[in-house]
Write a protein that binds this DNA or RNA. Structure first.
Lengths: 341, 341
DNA sequence: CTGAAAGCGCTAACAG
DNA sequence: CTGTTAGCGCTTTCAG
């Protein structure tokens, strides 16, 4: 059985108050006493009981992180950065997968809200900010990669419209004229896909090109397999595209795989650009051109948001609406064949 | 401020005992009372305080998961599966990144051991099972992807020697005779790399081929960049290999990238096999041959181990030493060029 | 089936 | 600088 504060106090011949002070460092203790206590702690192999401490303090040092899926490279990289940034602030991350299911996302917010986390980062796929908010008025929530039209909740995201516009413009400036968009998700209501579509169309319009429904491909998910299938459809269509803007790198890599396997040369016959800048894209052949959101900053600023709510004035603060920078990274899939190095 | 059990009891005109019974379902309550309580709960928007419950029950429903890095595809996929399997058992996963640093791994075990998790899954890079055990005699620990020579701790892993032998044999059976091994990690002491090296050498020996130090390449980490660099070294060497066994798919993809960029044809001039079966490998061109550990089962059985310790006889159980199956998945990087489909 | 009450281990207000 | 003590919100034993 486990030693408690009281046991340590008894062994050291002091009161629990003093032991607590030594453990937390919250008040000064005379060196002699501290030493005695320290020794007692080691003898008994004492570890403070976090559950008790949490109950008392009303804070847990845990933050929740809810993403649709961890296994995909984008979320994997993002989660990694968030965990690292949280560790720097001595928070521990409690992670949940929502699989994008609406009732899972909602239940999660309700369930997690038992004073077990101090705050929640969530990357919602199907549930709106308003609904999330309704689940829990208390819990500080930061939305990731999602714009919240009503501005009810802190959120940090890239400017998807501008980024998509930039990606499409890049293809158009290369002289491509039949540019497909792969990644519409009419079944979801999280806004990301529709914003990227809007940016795509805006760029086309600026170049005086009419949107062609045949070139706008919807997908059930943003994975490689979906991109591969979408590319099959495009290549089997009437008029084959000469460029593809995929709404995720995974889609792009799947599309590229299909293209190459059908002897469509990339980028000569087909230029491809993705979105996310996952590491795979840097090492495939040809390497993938992409929009690179600043993931480091997404993680950092999201945690900063939470910190502001928790340590700062809290509820009093206005809602943060943070737009994180992105940049276009041009690689071989829109440029030329792999060079000598 | 937040409603507590007492508030609900007051509003419903019953005792806290009854409310508690309704909430946990632990004892039967008359339908009428239950209804009244239920209404009060909703009116006050009551949520049980998990910290208090944990303190009382002595269990938290949280399990810790410590991996060197989440952003790498292999760990990303594994973490995803573990989280999913944990959710099925109503556990929540608390995740930590150790970056493979020895003192981080140790401190983590100590720190996490404050009754805040009921158990811990850890994939150690630098710290031995014995050391981990020493940090905490209480906490149920399951080692992931690591063999524990002294058999002190539950662990689940593939048979790395056999798997590496199989991979190397595959290359040798293709007729390759200068087979490089990329991924030695002499600076780490986690056994994985040395076991794969042993399997590699065993296969060579069986074919009567002497190990060549020039073909055994050490790397600082298992990432694509390391594989790319290793390949440069090999291609710049005296006698170029005709096959590569990389200790991870990431290394393999990095190596492949370098090979292709230097106009070495894969698989004609150089066959490549990886280890892990990450999703990227299925969609690159050429697609990557690999050893596929059953990740699903790793997750499932690791959690089963914990469940046995926590719900079953606990400490009384003998140490589990679980070997998870793997299989060789042959794709284009050791077979032929991408076919028509 | 329900109520009263005793803590779980810790922190912090209060008092020396 | 140190001791005493009142809870944090919940579960659960013991009575009714």
């Amino acid at each position: 059985v486990r030693a408690s504060l009281k046991d340590v106090a008894a062994l050291a011949g002091v009161s629990v108050r003093t032991v607590s002070n030594v453990v937390t460092g919250s008040a000064s203790v005379s060196p002699a006493t501290r030493d005695r206590v320290q020794r007692a702690i080691e003898t008994l192999n004492y570890r403070p009981n976090l559950a008790a401490r949490n109950l008392r303090r009303g804070r847990t040092g845990l933050i929740g992180l809810a993403v649709p899926e961890i296994h995909s490279p984008y979320f994997g990289e993002l989660v990694g950065r968030i965990v690292a940034a949280a560790q720097e602030r001595s928070w521990t991350v409690l992670i949940e997968q929502t699989a994008g299911a609406p009732e899972r996302e909602r239940r999660l917010v309700e369930g997690i809200d038992g004073q077990i986390v101090d705050g929640l980062l969530i990357s919602p796929w199907s549930v709106s900010a308003a609904e999330l908010r309704a689940c829990s008025a208390e819990l500080p929530i930061v939305l990731l990669g999602e714009r919240d039209p009503e501005g009810l909740t802190d959120h940090v995201a890239v400017d998807n419209v501008a980024a998509a516009d930039q990606a499409t413009t890049h293809l158009l400036e290369l002289g491509r004229r039949r540019v497909a968009a792969v990644g519409l998700q009419p079944h979801l209501d999280n806004g990301t896909a529709s914003q990227r579509l809007a940016g795509y169309r805006r760029a086309l319009a600026r170049f005086g090109i009419a949107a062609d429904p045949e070139l706008e491909i919807a997908v059930p998910a943003l994975h490689r397999a979906d991109g591969a299938r979408a590319m099959w459809r495009l290549l089997d269509g009437e008029r084959v595209p000469d460029a593809v803007f995929a709404f995720s790198d995974e889609l792009a890599l799947g599309a590229q795989r299909t293209a190459l396997s059908r002897s469509v040369r990339v980028p000569q016959d087909l230029a491809i650009i993705g979105f996310d800048d996952i590491e795979d894209g840097r090492y495939t052949t040809p390497a993938l051109t992409t929009i690179s959101p600043d993931k480091e900053q997404i993680a950092e600023r999201a945690l900063q948001c939470l910190a502001d709510r928790l340590h700062g004035p809290g509820r009093g603060l206005p809602v943060h609406r943070i737009v994180v920078p992105h940049r276009l990274v041009v690689r071989e899939s829109t440029r030329g064949m792999p060079a000598g190095r």
